[in-house]
Amino acid sequence: QQIVSPDMLIKHPLQNRWAMWFFKNDKSKEWTANLKLITAFDTVEDFWGLYNHIQKASRLPSGCDYSLFKDGIQPMWEDASNKNGGRWLVNLNKNQRQTELDNFWLETLLCLIGEAFDDLTDDICGATINIRNKGDKLGLWTRDARRGDATLQIGKKLKERLKIPQKIGIGFQAHSDTATKAGSTARDRYRV
């Protein structure tokens, strides 16, 4: 018999329990019916068990989303935890689906489960990757759009972890602005 280190047997707990969601755009159904909970997890090993098992985001058909949110928060503006918040938005061009998208999404997931936002963890709700032929989008969702300093720190950390060049700015949009926008994009409340 082999002696196995306890480290190989004990799963590593996460600070938060996280839920992975999948959205597939079936126009014959209501939006909410297209949003499905895949599973929730609260250990590092269970995260990898899930991530290693599901399709890479770049291989999803256009119109699909993955979302990772704290357990109990639904990946929609209307959720009580999201309605006063917003998202840092990273817009990808068509080339980046093959070169950057999976890396960006994995890095974002690692930020979430690893608690990369330190004391600002309570401001974090989750993240979503939207696969769209007109341009893929990665969003990091926060709880309260009025918390300027916290929001800016979160944006800077995201940009740093994704290794987005300094000269490329990313914007933060409040969900309330996105929900009521007249044009195709909401205004940026903050930029880094």
């Binding site: 190989m8 590092v44 489960i113």
Partner: peptide, 18 residues
């Protein structure tokens, strides 16, 4: 209180955990 966080490198090491 205490908070559990993981460095990126550690999370990546766990990827192939049985």
């Amino acid at each position: 209180g205490t908070r559990i966080f993981y460095e990126r490198a550690f999370l990546m090491q766990c990827r192939e955990s049985p």
